[in-house]
């Protein structure tokens, strides 16, 4: 290995602890990410994808307990003080939020908010910061950017607000961009614009990007690699094209079968029976076991390990070796596909 990867996470676990309950919401998560790569966390609500991402910047509520190690550009995030973290948040890793409505401060103009962030991190004058803010707004393709610099968030449409949010996240030239379902709150037509924008900015600036989504179409659009999450664990990781072509884990296969595409018109949409497990009452073995079509006795013996196999892929299923090339489901996945 010539140099350290930008992000290296080993055995990450996140527990939410209070007086009555000790809940493990993320468990046994390990991954690495190089500069310029796009990784997508795919999973349904409550699968731990957002928590995993926020753990990278330690943006978690005070009752969260992080285990394992997180290295971001050489910084050991788990060991840093709150004050040291301030230097990491922004220049090293920045985040785009799901709701552009609430993630921008309503009482300040867009330009002020971006300039404030730049001034806080770099030794530049207010005028220089304003000029940079204008460049950023132009970079995220906000029309008549000079005028929008003095607009309050409520004067912008949802799509423009999300662009402003992206400009704010990019204001400190982060090496790692974290995007938490950045298109979920937007119209379908605006969604694709924002996705393409993030993708092109990511390429242009050479940023590593982690994308959180529950939309497999979004994942296909932006990601190099996917990590499918289920009940707080990675169940399958690998390059996006390979996973879509031949999912190794029954859960991923189920997800792909339940997507909408032109060829399934008029048919009843396939779904995975049952619901995700209660985190307070997890099954003894494979978390997906109770809903799995290929469920066997061995599955309940213990949590299966993430089994690596050809093509840089891995799957947390005991049947992994047998199903690799079965190539079921999938096919064309449309952009609007929702799971």
């Amino acid at each position: 290995m010539p140099r350290d990867p930008l992000v290296e996470v080993r055995d990450l676990s996140v527990r939410f602890v209070n007086r009555d309950i000790d809940l493990t919401v993320v468990d046994d998560v390990s991954f690495r990410l190089d500069a310029g790569e796009v990784l997508c966390f795919l999973g349904e609500s409550g699968s731990g994808k957002t928590v995993t991402m926020r753990a990278l910047l330690r943006l978690l509520p005070p009752h969260a307990r992080i285990g394992g190690s997180i290295r971001l550009a050489g910084h050991d995030v788990t060991a840093m003080s709150e004050r040291q973290l301030e230097a990491v948040r922004g220049p090293v890793g920045a985040m785009i939020f799901q709701e552009p409505m609430t993630a921008l401060d309503p009482v300040f103009t867009i330009g002020t908010q971006i300039a404030e962030t730049i001034v806080a991190h770099e030794a530049v004058s207010w005028a220089q910061a304003r000029a940079r803010a204008l460049e950023l707004l132009e970079m995220v393709q906000i029309p008549s950017a000079a005028r929008r610099l003095d607009a309050y968030p409520h004067e912008l449409s949802g799509g423009l607000r999300q662009r402003a949010m992206i400009a704010l996240a990019l204001s400190c030239k982060p090496a790692l961009l974290l995007a938490d379902e950045p298109t979920t709150a937007l119209d379908a037509t605006v969604q694709i614009q924002i996705l393409l924008l993030i993708r092109s900015l990511q390429k242009e600036l050479g940023m590593a990007t982690i994308f959180v989504t529950h939309d497999i179409g979004v994942a296909c659009e932006v990601a190099d690699r996917i990590a499918v999450m289920y009940a707080g664990r990675f169940v399958e990781t690998g390059p996006v094209a390979d996973i879509v072509a031949s999912p190794a884990h029954p859960y991923t296969a189920g997800l792909l079968r339940s997507t909408v595409s032109a060829s399934t018109r008029g048919e009843r949409l396939a779904s995975i029976p049952g619901g995700p497990p209660d985190l307070t009452d997890m099954p003894p073995g494979c978390a997906f076991g109770p809903r799995c079509v290929s469920h066997g006795a061995a599955c309940d013996a213990g949590v299966p390990p993430l089994i690596p196999f050809a093509g840089g892929r891995a799957s947390r299923c005991l049947l992994t070796k047998e199903v690799v090339h079965a190539g079921q489901g999938g096919g064309s996945v449309s952009r609007e596909a929702h799971m």
């Binding site: 943006l59 985040m95 939020f97 401060d105 949010m165």
Partner: peptide, 23 residues
């Protein structure tokens, strides 16, 4: 979210209180 967003861009507690919360 905007307070969280300010934390995500590396704002200190003091700056968040003075700028975002007070305003």
């Amino acid at each position: 979210d905007y307070v969280e967003a300010a934390r995500a861009t590396g704002a200190s507690a003091g700056r968040i209180i003075v700028q975002h919360v007070l305003a």
